[in-house]
């Protein structure tokens, strides 16, 4: 009897979690005529992929995707490039900086974004970076950095120090031992951090909303939001199609790291 109730509860959860997703999919595959029906249907009678094509015509989605891709690529590569040395330092020398860095990760969570974004907007305006993609890259790097640093130093810590020492006993220089011993072991961690930074930037909305006001430079989340407004029913199909496409990079990322999620990422003890 207990089992029965457990299954009932499990089904309820599955329904709650899945039904908005299925509806999004269903909407993306419907024709405008079917959308206008008073009694909405779950399974489209004449499934169509036309919405995906229309989505590209409605707004500058191709341009927005390219801009999002460029911003996310630059932001993730720069984030990892500058946090890798720092992560190495943090993992190898236990010092006060360590505690300060962790402290900052926590503080940056508590303070509301408005307190940072107003002055940041003013600073970027003075640097003529408002309404530019480099401006957004700078902001994304800054705000992904603390967490990327935290992730990376966990990976560095997992590489035994003895390996480095062994290499130097064998006559390898310090740099040499880092490049040929630490780097290969660190590669999976670096890739995971790159992916994490990429997705954070790809999904980010708030800073982009403030910094990019000109439709010509808007990233994908902003362009998607511009789809809505006083819209007619006919535009919902393309909107749903575009939303699905915007989710693809994140889905790929989560498919890759899914197995590690449970143990590693959340506990902070990330394993390479």
């Amino acid at each position: 009897m207990r089992r029965v109730w457990q299954y009932v509860a499990l089904v309820a959860y599955v329904v709650f979690l899945a039904f908005p997703l299925l509806w999004l999919l269903s909407t993306a595959l419907k024709t405008p005529q079917e959308m206008a029906l008073t009694d909405p249907t779950w399974i489209p009678r004449e499934p169509t992929l036309a919405n995906f094509g229309d989505a590209f015509g409605e707004q500058d989605l191709v341009g927005a995707s390219v801009r999002s891709l460029v911003v996310a690529l630059f932001a993730s590569v720069i984030t990892v490039a500058i946090s890798l040395p720092a992560a190495y330092a943090m993992a190898r020398h236990r010092s006060l900086i360590n505690k300060i860095a962790i402290g900052w990760v926590l503080v940056s969570q508590v303070f509301p974004f408005i307190l940072i974004i107003i002055p940041l907007f003013m600073i970027l305006r003075d640097l003529d970076l408002v309404n530019t993609l480099p401006g957004l890259v700078v902001v994304h790097v800054t705000f992904t950095l603390p967490f990327a640093l935290w992730m990376l130093q966990g990976y560095v810590r997992a590489v035994p120090r003895e390996l480095e020492e062994a290499a130097s006993v064998d006559g390898a220089g310090r740099l040499r031992s880092i490049v040929s011993v630490v780097a290969p072991l660190l590669a999976p961690g670096v890739v995971a951090t790159l992916l994490f930074s990429f997705i954070s930037s790809w999904n980010e909305f708030m800073f982009a909303l403030v910094i990019l006001q000109d439709p010509e430079v808007m990233t994908l989340p902003l362009t998607l939001v511009r789809f809505t407004g006083p819209e007619g029913v006919a535009r919902l199909g393309p909107l749903a199609a575009a939303s699905l496409m915007a989710t693809i990079p994140s889905l790929i990322f989560f498919a890759i790291i899914q197995r590690r999620l449970k143990s590693g990422l959340m506990a902070g003890a990330v394993k390479g």
Binding site: W202, N203, F205, P221, L224, A240
Partner: peptide, 9 residues
């Protein structure tokens, strides 16, 4: 999912 997509969905 991107938060924006959750909202739109």
């Amino acid at each position: 999912m991107p938060p924006v997509v959750i909202g739109l969905m």
